[in-house]
């Protein structure tokens, strides 16, 4: 007796930016997962440019690119509200990298004059172009402890640091208190924009929505630089490093570009998170 395998569709927002890189790594990650599972789902990966294409997705990646362009094109293509519904009202698993992290933030600063539209979903304030212009872009070898939580054996046991590419990258400047509505305090700040609020549509979405923001990774660079001059530890000088990866329920954001390195470990981890979120939903609905 064979049960038909469930099909899970993961979309990559393809309005602009490095979407094809994510699709290639998703394929690699699915292959890595399949090698470890007896009966995994049938994955389907697809580019998303229209509301109809988004409708067919169980989970979504918002890639790197120019966040201002993506939000303008999204708004002119009738995608902004469907995206807000997807991430915030239905609370489906979503991951944003770089520009994607900016769009998923509830609050952002250093945006273009006149601001830009945000989708929201993560209770954080993001600072755009935190490190400066392109000549300040860099790669870094990061320890990402959360990767050890994967079931996929190769990812779990692979202790290599994760080479991460930061390109005119944003960072999470502040973790915000979780509020049901708009981030009002943030909205009152100069030069800061916020996402409009959306209420979760059902109990499943509400449970994901009510989770706190977790810091998944930091960049220890600046703290290390300081500690060269004094013996003080990073913690003592009040800096533990810039926050470069966060998760809130099933919404995940990274300020760097795992899609540029050919290393699929974070994609493996995230696909497992998607599976977990889908089974949480199914359990609640039973």
């Amino acid at each position: 007796m064979t049960q038909s395998r469930p099909q899970i569709t993961v979309g990559v927002l393809a309005l602009q930016g490095a979407f094809s890189e994510h699709l290639q790594l998703l394929q690699q990650a699915a292959a890595a997962l399949a090698a470890n599972r007896v009966a995994g789902p049938a994955w389907r990966f697809t580019e998303v440019r229209t509301p109809a294409e988004l409708d067919r997705c169980d989970a979504l990646i918002i890639p790197g690119g120019e966040s201002t362009t993506m939000s303008l094109v999204a708004s002119r293509s009738g995608m902004l509200e469907p995206l807000r519904d997807f991430v915030k009202a239905h609370r489906k698993p979503t991951w944003g990298t770089c520009a994607g992290l900016i769009l998923l933030a509830e609050s952002a600063n250093k945006t273009k004059k006149g601001g830009q539209e945000l989708i929201g979903g993560l209770d954080v304030r993001v600072e755009r172009n935190h490190f400066g212009r392109q000549v300040e872009s860099f790669t870094a070898e990061l320890d990402l402890p959360f990767l050890a939580a994967t079931e996929a054996v190769e990812t779990k046991t692979d202790k290599r640091p994760f080479r991460s590419v930061f390109i005119r990258a944003p960072v999470v400047e502040k973790i915000l208190p979780h509020t049901a509505g708009m981030q009002v305090v943030e909205a009152a700040k100069d030069g800061t924009i916020v996402a409009p609020s959306r209420m979760p549509t059902d109990e499943v979405a509400r449970r994901e929505f009510d989770k706190e923001v977790e810091i998944m990774a930091r960049l220890p660079g600046r703290a290390k630089a300081w500690s060269k001059f004094s013996d003080a530890t990073a913690r003592e000088i009040g800096e533990e490093g810039d926050i470069i990866a966060v998760r809130q329920g099933n919404v995940f954001g990274t300020s760097f570009h795992p899609e540029l390195t050919g290393d699929e470990r974070i994609h493996v981890w995230w696909l497992e998170q998607v599976l977990a979120a889908i089974s949480r939903r199914e359990e609640l609905l039973q």
Binding site: Q16, S20, E21, G64, Q134, S137, R168
Partner: peptide, 10 residues
């Protein structure tokens, strides 16, 4: 080359 990739589709 990474920045160029971020400009794709633009």
């Amino acid at each position: 080359a990474g920045l160029a990739r971020m400009l794709k589709g633009g």
